[in-house]
Write a protein that binds this DNA or RNA. Structure first.
Lengths: 122, 122
DNA sequence: ATAGGTGCAAACAGTTTGCATGTAT
DNA sequence: ATACATGCAAACTGTTTGCACCTAT
């Protein structure tokens, strides 16, 4: 299986690079629709999955929401979700959460999500 | 609108009290099916929603998963999810996450989730 | 020329809703 | 008796898949 460079695929990939924040399939469709017309949602899903399997994108799951994706290779980070515009932003920095792990339990990962209003929405 | 005490409702409510951990509709159905027979999944959903609106239950959303619920009134806490048995456990303690909030952003809440293996699954 | 990609519509899974029937009050 | 609750099946929503057609290689 080798990946071809199609109009749609280039457009989808460039959306992630240009916006540089976690995006869901609908976000991507909406952006892509402005560049390339008649792109189907199925293609967006398929392309995102391919890019994900290739390791170009990583998944960003926030509590209670469907998956978003962002370009891979960033340093470890967490996210802020604006409750008004619903956009997700990248946070820098992390915290040591080990102290919360009960004894006898083994930690393999963690997630921190902060909710609130972004600077544009306050 | 007043809430009646039916067999199904009593059973569903007691499952949350007995198991004392976040449960999804399917978890509840499976438990309830052992006490009361012929309970429909729709009733489970409706009852959970009613209990949620009444404030008896609170929602527990973990990244990438559908909503679970647990009995309300507990102290602020976070969760640990076992990647093997998929159960969710309550953690005690919290961390100060304010330092992660970008300037100009306003924080109204936060979430911390730890993944790994529970003591029974290691 | 041909293996992959695309669009459309159908299929799916999880959740919600309409409706006739059952039941707590 | 009557309003609320239940079970079933149909409707919905977000995601995936099958298939005939299209296109990068």
């Amino acid at each position: 299986m080798m990946t071809r460079s199609t109009r749609q695929r280039r457009a989808i990939r460039s959306v992630f690079e240009r916006l540089n924040r976690p995006l869901g399939p609908q976000d991507v469709l909406q952006e892509v629709a402005q560049e390339v017309e008649g792109v189907g949602i199925a293609t967006v899903y398929r392309t995102i999955n391919t890019l994900y399997e290739e390791g170009v994108l990583v998944k960003v799951d926030l509590p209670g929401e469907s998956s978003r994706y962002e370009v891979a290779g960033k340093a470890h980070h967490h996210h802020f979700r604006c409750q008004k515009c619903e956009q997700v932003f990248e946070l820098t920095g992390c915290l040591n959460v080990k102290s919360l792990v009960p004894s006898g339990f083994q930690m393999t990962g963690h997630d921190i999500v902060i909710f609130g209003q972004c600077s544009a929405c306050r």
